[in-house]
Design a binder for these strands. Sequence first.
RNA 1: GGGCGUUUAGCUCAGUUGGCUAGAGCAUCUCCCUUACAAGGAGAGGGUCGGGGGUUCGAGCCCCUCAACGCCCA
Length: 881
Amino acid sequence: MPEVSRFAWRCRRGSALCQAYDLGTMSGVPEKPSLENVEPKWIDSWDQNGTYAFDRSATRDNVFSIDTPPPTVSGSLHMGHVFSYTHTDTVARFWRMRGKSVFYPMGWDDNGLPTERRVQNYYGVSCDASVAYVPNFQPPFRGDPPKDHRAVPISRPNFIELCEELTAEDEKIFEDLFRRLGLSVDWSLLYTTIEDRSRRASQRAFLRNLVRGEAYTQEAPTLWDVDFRTAVAQAELEDRDRPGAYHTIAFHKSDGSGDVLIDTTRPELLPACVALIAHPDDPRYQPLFGKIVRTPLFDVEVPVFAHPLAQIDKGTGIAMCCTFGDLTDVIWWRELQLSMRAIISRDGRIVNEPPSGLTDSAGLAHYASLVGKSAKQAQTAIAEMLTTSGEMIGEPRAITHPVKFYEKGDRPLEIVTSRQWYIRNGGRDAALRDSLLARGAGLNWLPDHMRHRYSNWVEGLNGDWLVSRQRWFGVPVPVWYPLDAQGETLHDSPLVPDESLLPIDPSTDAPVGYTEAQRGQPDGFIGDPDVMDTWATSSLTPQIAGKWQDDNDLFERVFPFDVRPQGHDIIRTWLFSTMVRSHFEHDVAPWSHVALSGWILDPDRKKMSKSKGNVVTPADLFDSYGSDAVRYWAVGARPGVDTAFSEDQMKVGRKLATKLLNVSKFVLGIGEVADDVVPTEAIDVAMLHRLAGVVDEATAAFEAFDYARVLERTEEFFWWFCDDYVELVKTRGYLSHTEDGAMSARAALRRALSTMQRLLAPLLPFVTEEVWNWWQSGSVHQSQWPTTSALTDGLTDGPNEELLDAICGAIGVIRRAKTEAKVSQRAVVTEASFVTSINAASAITAGWADIADAGSVEKWSISTADTNEITVDVTLAPNIH
RNA sequence: GGGCGUUUAGCUCAGUUGGCUAGAGCAUCUCCCUUACAAGGAGAGGGUCGGGGGUUCGAGCCCCUCAACGCCCA
């Protein structure tokens, strides 16, 4: 046969001959099904019909509630969002079809530092609390300020207005993208973390913590980011390996009997030294305990103490304790009741005022030369001075060591003393810690091993939760302080607002009983200047989404929530802090299940990141493959497992969606059948029983949040159905033989089609809605989840896998024979001789008419042998071409 | 240093309580316009289940051990 171009074949297929097969009698089934434009059509339909609206008349037993993660509105949504939100959506859709009223809100986390930074970069401004408010302020830029632009300082209210303006734009984009992805969110439940209702919930919960003694304020050493100029909580720390150098420094014994050598990586803190510390069991230093030594360069007297945290094998075994170089210094300072000699300011520079105890004139001169230097510059300077004075022993020895950073910061954290607010979290209270551990142990973790992340974190807490931040765009700490007659702040007796007044801003609102004129005056008041950590608000998402106190009738219908979906990277922050708040406020865990999603990895198995330039835009993928196809890729990943980004999988998903269109068109177009016809042919009945098994498995899998298994089992059946079952029965279904046989096939095809469309509906919501509406009324997403009883209703025979296997095996060997002979599958087999087991032979005999139709077999024979295999010899008709 | 996870075909992964010849998709190769679908279909090849040891009639799965990779915590 001469080679024919694909184009020529297409022309032939489009000819009148091909169009003669008329689908016009099937109402709703398009002649040429397509995935084009189905998404906008159904997005609008769902919106207009309230398909996903939460029915708040449902009682808690009939509600499935989801504590949706509110994405941070500081840029764009990426594939990680698409991935994990799809997982949650499939589960939401399943429970909706199971008859639950699904509480599926969305929130935007527009609160906090990421937004501040984005506003600074986008508008070319910076916040300065001393600048006056400018009505109708216009920022110098809206997007992409030039690189040499210097940020324009603006007032806090103006800054916040810009924050709100920018997040509103971003949130619209986010919503559009999530709608496009097909999330079955009830958008009327949308919340943002900066809106009044969230600030009210956040401040109310804080004030209740305060009343119960769970929140407290304290002046204490705190980890501090010198660039952001804010305190940082333990949960926001990360260790980074950084180059450093051990400097060996000589301290001088006060009795003149020689030197004590210490090793330090931070010689610049020498003026802040308050003691030397060695291990109590270290014989080298036992004679020194309780004695006094003098610091080099500054000649300040410091005591030598014993403490078990000193490491015998580290350096010379005796350490310089400064206020403060690291967290161990804080412990020593507290437990040994040492002096305070702070020399690092909140912007990371050496302070003007020399520390206490420094009186030596040469020492003062040395100190003066350090003032204003950054820690790094001071280190260089002090190393030079020590070398000059001969008090540095040898050269500094380079090492690499872990240094604590704020996770969003660029310079190592310092420790400064400041007044901060804390919420108890078990870090300083064993009984509370045990309670929180028990709460975590009581959760259903998906996957289960993630529970260790929680217990690991709680057991490792070394302090309470620091919730105050020295920032602007956040929820203000809702307290004021009275000032005494001298104008001094009375921190121990804060003034609190009544809950009915919330939310408040203590920087602009005056407390009850005071007037604004008394702000900052003796015997007046002053507002707390700080805002709360973003997690202090995010930890209340169940309360915010459920409208706690604002609508308690609603709250009681949804709380505690059924599931918290989230990433495993924020177990220590979001998950744990939510647990803390719920434990205190409601004495219950905020959810029964926690579903942790995995990471998206690029094809090189590295976590996808913007800096590597390998982030793909979700919208582009929706355009290329369709939302269902992108969801297919996401759903294919096992719960909690890191997954490689794969456009190949999206192509497969696209194929599946297209196939569902085509097979639906076929089943609905093969011919009419009365609704009450019950399938009777053995193969039809066996197929329905096989599908019933899939329904059982899919249902159990969804109940366990295992959407991936639902897809796997449904998809496996679906392709078998298309490739084997449909091929076997299509000729019979066209009414080629008997009326009964045709009706049995048509009825079975329709039962199966309805079931498969519903099984796939939570996974591929667009294409299933499209094909469902060709022949059913209402949304597939409000239809009932398939049941085995409906699927097998009226069938007189039971399951028969052996029959299906034998018949499909027989058609399989005939196909293989044709492929090996390199002829078309349509080629006629004049004679086929099978050899197989007795049981398979009887099954093949029973199903022979369908096999003969599908394989175009004219004459056949079968003999039995002691084998489970099916083999066949075929004689092919001469090729008529 | 402690904890958790992973290791199965070229790639991405299933493999449920230990049980027939270890599966799927992708990729590769071959063939096929066929009356739902060529944006399709029918087939084929490809694996020492990370290494070693053990338990068992039987191990990808259970136990011990080693290794590599990843993550969490210190």
